[in-house]
Write a protein that binds this DNA or RNA. Structure first.
Lengths: 217, 217
DNA sequence: GTCAGTTTCATACGGCCGTAAGACTGCCCT
DNA sequence: AGGGCAGTCTTACGGCCGTATGAAACTGAC
């Protein structure tokens, strides 16, 4: 349940231009939203030619989708690995807190201030609500990733009806997805700046305390 | 802590066209997002002339803002009234569950399937993340409404550090704002349709149980 | 050195966008 | 009767958008 960063390399030296576009687009989409960023904005930010987007990705929609796909895969893989490790530690039946930690830790790692994946997380959160119809369809349809977690949770709380588990997982995901800049800033304004965003380790414990309490009850 | 609907009239007979535009715009914005809906879409849906938006509201941005302002005011007023009633019932110091109920009940009332305010809630949730810079600034700046609730919560839990209250309120609002169609559909797909969206009274109790547990802990 | 293949470049096209301008309509007030 | 006016209509303008095209530049193999 630690937040230490682990080796996240990825060679990806192929096609410098394609990568410049990818990174610039992810950044701008995350900051301003899909519809508010034009292909011209992206190529200008990346310092490449206007036609690059359509040459390397096919279309603006396809670019968005590829970023979404890659980041989602990465996030899901990290989560699955942590859940797997929790399974190993507890003989295939980890307690609720460990399951929730596997769900929380990857995005919280990404969110750490010095982490350059911070923008990727903002992108994912945004794409979830503002994405293309294609993205929304996938989100609605492909729930295999979540199933691992709901299964683990029902195993950890066999006394709880399935439906109850789903609802509480729904609430927990709401907590998690609300961690975007603007919402945090709002609450921090209310707290007159005393919320201290930086400490992600403390945030993890806070979130686990809150979510676990709601789950164990 | 009941969900019975109360008198929500509002005369609003002024300028039929203006109202048609208002309603059509709210609906389309809620369903498809601000950037994905054109002035032409709105006026077509409303069955009025293209120029109506600019004549009655000044601009598309101003239209969005006016819808946001009105719905926010209505929601905040309902919440404030419920909190006030809770105060009266408990001599100015209601327990956590009552405070959270004052926060949850208005949006849940709006969300009830037969309620025509359902679309207004979807609009508000969307505007919160996709709105204009002006809307985001207001959300970030104007926290007077939230202060009533954070004050009440710190009074109900004087042993808890202020900062802790803000964090937990942040989590609770995350739970609440995640109640959009798409997110629910996702979880309901995972539950194979067994989540039974319709019963908002049960949902209220479920949310209160979860949030209260996290707060009391 | 040539040629095929890949990548970059400048440019343009058609389309939809938000907004403005000005003519027109109906209604009330005097 | 007639003038004023709020509201509605048609139409068009300039602008930015995503994408397509074809030429130019580059790369490596032989």
């Amino acid at each position: 349940m630690s937040l230490e960063v682990e080796g996240a390399d990825e060679a990806q030296t192929e096609a410098v231009t394609k990568n410049l576009v990818f990174m610039a687009a992810e950044r701008l989409f995350a900051l301003h939203g899909f519809q508010n960023v034009s292909v011209r904005d992206i190529t200008a930010e990346a310092g490449v030619n206007l036609a690059s987007v359509n040459y390397h990705f096919g279309s603006k929609d396809a670019l968005l989708f590829e970023i979404f796909r890659r980041r989602t895969t990465e996030l899901n893989r990290e989560r699955a690995r942590l859940l797997h490790e929790a399974n190993d530690r507890h003989g295939g039946k980890p307690p609720v807190r460990e399951i929730l930690a596997a769900l929380f830790i990857p995005p919280l790692r990404w969110m750490a201030p010095e982490n350059d994946r911070r923008i990727s997380l903002q992108f994912l959160i945004r794409a979830r609500s503002e994405g293309t119809e294609e993205i929304r369809t996938i989100l609605r349809t492909d729930v295999t990733h979540l199933r691992r977690f709901s299964d683990a949770l029902t195993a950890a709380r066999p006394d709880l009806p399935d439906v109850e588990v789903y609802w509480r997982l729904h609430f927990v995901l709401g907590m998690l997805h609300n961690n975007r800049f603007s919402e945090f800033d709002r609450m921090n304004a209310l707290a007159e700046g005393r919320m201290g965003e930086g400490d992600t380790a403390a945030l993890l414990e806070r979130m686990l305390d809150f979510a676990e309490a709601g789950f164990i009850r």
